[in-house]
Amino acid sequence: MEVWVGLFVAAGFAALFMLAMKVSNMSTVSSGDGYEIFARFGNIGGLNVRSPVRASGVLVGRVSKINYDSRTFEAIVTLTIENQFNQFPTDTTASIFTAGLLGEQYVSLTPGAEDAVLKQGDTIMFSDSAMVLERIIGKIVTDKLSE
């Protein structure tokens, strides 16, 4: 009987471990140990907390906080970047892209050429706002009409 209970508890913990490592994102995200940088956007579109931050398509961090600055009328997005990716130049550009036409939105970092690197608490100077589909369509339509 004790053996069966032991097996049962072991199987339960094995299942929990499998769910944690294989099914959830626990193995891919080391939350907490990263450094925070800020980026300002005129429009963040559908960006969420926990949206990915990518550089050249590689996941380097996640959006950890989104605030609105009522003085400058801009969104302030806090990005938590993993410590191993600490070589982003200070003139890096942050853009909001969409994965596929209708997929999730993410922040893309495009490195610049400066020697100094971004550190904890720095703010990215250059940013491209989200492409909002309606606006693009509207622009195409007005361009066509004005031709």
Binding site: F8, G12, A14, A15
Partner: peptide
């Protein structure tokens, strides 16, 4: 219960 639920989910996945 939590152990059974974990086993259920794991087997389902």
């Amino acid at each position: 219960m939590p152990l059974l639920a974990a086993i259920f989910s794991a087997v389902g996945v």
